[in-house]
């Protein structure tokens, strides 16, 4: 049993048409024992960037604070908001600094990035626990239900989904994957990010 599975939990992010979505289950466990059904592991970084931190619970808290600190330092020095691409590299280098004694977290990021023409385009990325970046064009997954998430997402996802359709797709993917994973579940939270608003919904899930 890996440390990565100690507390359980999974995160998924998907790209839609002019929107992105990121979702996670709400379980926190101690191996097979469920402790909490309201454990938040997705955090806002800016108004347009969210990060999900599946993995070891204690590192969720630590990394959240580290990212907050580093993003604040960036904002102060640069006098501008960080872009999703930049944040992804910040995450990557933060993790790689601990290459030989890593945080047991595999972050998933979702955001809308500014284009030179002044518009916004969807951005998602994920890394492994030592910061190897994966910029996917469709969806990224991580956590104890990752293999299940891959299977369902590969079957359900399609390009250019409108926000409400993307919400349905990511919710169904997460819920059905989590139901086949002993370490994920107990409800879920979904964030849909568009250029001008964020829709957050908490989902009921199976409690077994």
């Amino acid at each position: 049993m890996s440390i990565m599975d100690h507390n359980g939990g999974s995160v998924i992010a998907m790209v839609g048409k002019d929107c992105v979505a990121i979702a996670s289950d709400l379980r926190l466990g101690d191996r097979a024992l469920s402790i909490s059904s309201n454990f938040q592991r997705i955090f806002p970084i800016t108004d347009r960037i969210y990060v999900g931190l599946p993995g070891l619970g204690t590192d969720v808290a630590t990394l959240r604070e580290r990212f907050r600190f580093r993003v604040n330092m960036y904002t102060i020095k640069e006098e501008r908001e960080i872009e999703p691409e930049t944040f992804a590299h910040l995450v990557s280098s933060t993790l790689y600094e601990h290459r030989f004694g890593p945080y047991f977290i595999e972050p998933v990021m979702a955001g809308m990035s500014k284009t030179p023409s002044g518009g916004y385009k969807p951005f998602i990325a994920a890394t492994d626990l030592i910061g190897c970046l994966n910029f996917a064009k469709d969806f990224v997954v991580a956590g104890t239900a990752s293999s299940k998430l891959y299977g369902v997402a590969e079957g359900l996802w399609e390009p250019d989904l409108e926000p409400e359709d993307l919400f349905e797709t990511i919710s169904q993917t997460l819920l059905n994957a989590a139901d086949r994973d002993a370490f994920s579940g107990w409800g879920a939270i979904v964030h849909i990010i568009t250029k001008d608003k964020i829709i957050t919904r908490t989902l009921k899930g199976r409690m077994d």
Binding site: K148, Y150, G151, V152, G155, N176, D179, R180
Partner: peptide, 19 residues
Amino acid sequence: AAQSLVQPFLDNQIYFKNQ
């Protein structure tokens, strides 16, 4: 090998789980 990928998809599409 791909049971973990396929079974939850089938739960959703055959048994209409979570729908």
